[in-house]
């Protein structure tokens, strides 16, 4: 009687609404994407998609813009991940080590999290303005005028400008996660190490680093996936320009979608899903091996 009562309490109806909604608008599309990527569905014949085998994928690999967008996305992801992790960890260490107003700094660095990426992009397009923008003006003020560039319209610097903006935007969350990881390391370990005569670097290598691997893992995955998925900020700042210098995967898919080539964009999207899922699983697996239990 009792056991029936308890399991009856947790009826499937609790999970059903969420299950159905999620299935309909997430799982189902992902599955049908598997099919859609092999059709020539477009806005010209919206109700008559036809199978065209591997044609979409062939077009993708022959398309120069696609190759450029993949390359740009890789560069963007690698650059931003490395900087965000290294600088983020550094900032977290500094904050964790006794600067005053730690919470204020944390708040300030974290604040861009609540702003819309498009809005941030517009603000930055003002900052990056070559003649009047604050960044170039500041550089000229301190005598580094030769460093002032056409940040958004010179193909050499546009990608750098985008990376800097993205790092500015997202490093707050990274720092917060690292801080939490750092704070969860028991102080006794450090004190014991000091008693043993260990120096700063040794403490870092043997205590801090191994015990914060979990936050490192999460941050890496967040940066990698966030970098690959990037869209809003690039769209608002340069929309893939100038001359495809900042065309990333997200803007490529949107461009194809806006041209009405739905099957083609679905193919690109499918590739994306597969690669990202693989990367996530592999990264998770790698870090799982490195974890240290205490």
């Amino acid at each position: 009687m009792r056991s029936k009562g308890i399991s009856g309490q947790y009826s499937v109806l609790f999970v059903l609404p969420a299950f159905c909604l999620f299935s309909l608008f997430f799982i189902l599309p992902n599955l049908s994407g598997l099919v859609m990527a092999f059709t020539n569905w477009s806005s010209y014949f919206p109700l008559h998609p036809k199978f065209n085998g591997w044609r979409n994928f062939q077009d993708l690999f022959e398309s120069p813009v696609f190759a450029i967008s993949v390359r740009n996305t890789l560069i963007f992801t690698a650059a931003t991940t490395i900087v965000k992790i290294v600088v983020g960890f550094g900032l977290a260490l500094i904050l964790n080590n006794g600067v005053k107003y730690k919470n204020t700094y944390r708040t300030i660095i974290f604040s861009p999290f609540v702003f819309n990426p498009l809005v941030i992009a517009y603000v930055f397009s003002a900052l990056y303005q070559p003649t009047f923008g604050p960044i170039n003006t500041l550089l000229r003020h301190v005598g580094l005028g030769f460093l002032a560039q056409n940040w958004l319209t010179d193909t050499k610097y546009a990608m750098t400008a985008i990376c800097v903006m993205d790092i500015w935007m997202s490093i707050g969350a990274i720092v917060v996660i690292f801080l939490t990881g750092l704070q969860s390391v028991p102080k006794e370990y450090y004190e014991a190490a000091t008693v043993d005569g260990a120096g700063g670097i040794s403490k870092f290598r043997h205590i801090t680093f191994p015990l914060t691997i979990y936050s490192l893992c999460i941050n890496t995955i967040l940066c990698l996936i966030g970098g690959a998925k990037v869209f809003g900020q690039v769209y608002g700042l340069t929309n893939g320009g100038p001359a495809d210098a900042t065309q990333v995967y997200g803007t490529f898919i949107f461009k194809s979608f806006s041209s009405g080539l739905f099957g083609y964009s679905a193919a690109a999207g499918l590739l994306f899903t597969i690669v990202i899922s693989l990367v996530s699983f592999i990264t998770l697996g790698l870090f799982r091996r490195l974890e240290v239990d205490y």
């Binding site: 020539n40 477009s42 010209y44 014949f45 044609r55 077009d59 398309s63 041209s259 009405g260 080539l261 099957g263 083609y264």
Partner: peptide, 8 residues
């Protein structure tokens, strides 16, 4: 070429 293929 791709566009024209799609548009048939």
């Amino acid at each position: 070429a791709q566009y024209n293929r799609t548009v048939q």
